[in-house]
């Protein structure tokens, strides 16, 4: 199995073999981060541009560290500092970047499909670091890497994803990836947070937390976008927490060795109780560590894709 794609735009496009290749490569990269000199010369002379139209310290830092551990030069461009505010279009920005000849462009954008526009108009490899509510493939890959680390496999596991599925790119990418790897996915939350025909993506849909996590090997809690409350997805944070917050009692519906994941940042006491977030089931910090390895793997696999 060799990597042949120019870009990583979404989990929807990846086969099980491709996912396995990324995860296997990421496993090998874990070791680099444990060395005293946490750097290999592999991507010396390569330039990775982190083009972030949406604020994200976590993901951007993870990509930056990944690039630097591979000896690539990482350049961060954030929307506020860029020409975007001056009315330049995404395509103009892309062409300008292209002229400076970077090797990989990592893009995050609030508009779904933006990485696809970029991929169509520049020769560089594009990595989607989150586009609107569409996909966030590197998050799904690090989640799957974490699952494989903790459970030794992905196929056959039951994964419950709880929260605002409608507005979650993390949920979409995980649904595609986990399905490709043979896991069973259940999604849960109030019906206002379930996008129409979500079951046609190959998941079961529940409207209460107990049913969603019954028999689950993994629970993924999604961040409640508190600002979305304004558009009536739920009446109040208090009510949401009362019925959908993952606390110690509710976890009992899951398997005994269940692990809890969260893409961060956490709203403690809203979607997840503090004792669960910090408790023995939580693998949230493993996810962060694996994020660097997954992104190193992708930079490695995509490097030279444009040559």
């Amino acid at each position: 199995m060799r990597w042949t794609k120019k870009d990583l735009l979404g989990m929807k496009d990846l086969s099980a073999d491709e996912i396995r290749l990324i995860l296997d490569t990421a496993d090998s990269f874990m070791e680099v981060s444990t060395r005293e000199i946490k750097k290999v010369p592999t991507l010396r002379g390569k330039t990775v541009v982190n083009l972030f139209f949406e604020a994200s310290t976590r993901t951007r830092t993870s990509f930056e560290i990944a690039a630097k551990r591979l000896s690539a030069d990482a350049v961060n461009i954030s929307a506020s500092a860029s020409s975007v505010v001056k009315g330049e279009t995404l395509i103009d920005t892309a062409r300008n970047l292209e002229a400076m000849n970077p090797d990989i462009i990592v893009i995050r954008h609030s508009a779904a499909g933006s990485p696809h526009i970029l991929a169509r108009c520049v020769k560089q490899s594009i990595i989607n670091a989150g586009d609107g509510a569409h996909e966030h493939p590197t998050q799904a890959l690090l989640d799957m890497m974490t699952i494989r680390q903790k459970k030794g496999k992905i196929a056959g596991l039951k994964i419950a994803i709880i929260g605002d599925i409608a507005h979650s790119r993390v949920a979409r990418s995980n649904i595609h990836g986990l399905n490709a790897m043979g896991a069973k996915v259940a999604v849960g939350g109030p019906a206002t947070m379930m996008p129409r025909e979500i079951e046609r993506l190959g998941v079961t849909v529940h409207h209460n937390i107990a049913d969603t996590i019954r028999g689950a090997d993994i629970i993924m809690m999604l961040r409640v976008q508190i600002e979305r409350k304004a558009i009536c997805l739920f009446p109040s944070l208090r009510e949401y927490a009362k019925f959908f917050c993952l606390d110690r009692d509710r976890i009992r519906n899951a398997k005994e060795d269940v692990i809890i994941m969260h893409p961060g940042p956490i709203n403690r006491g809203v979607e997840i109780s503090p004792e669960v977030a910090d408790g023995p089931y939580s693998v949230i910090l493993d996810q962060v560590a694996n994020g660097v390895a997954v992104r190193m793997a992708l930079l490695y696999l995509l490097a030279g894709g444009s040559s």
Partner: peptide, 15 residues
């Protein structure tokens, strides 16, 4: 259009 494709693409649907 709101439906399977809008759900897949994460684009806000028009029912």
């Amino acid at each position: 259009n709101e439906g399977r494709i809008s759900t897949e693409l994460g684009l806000k649907g028009i029912p």
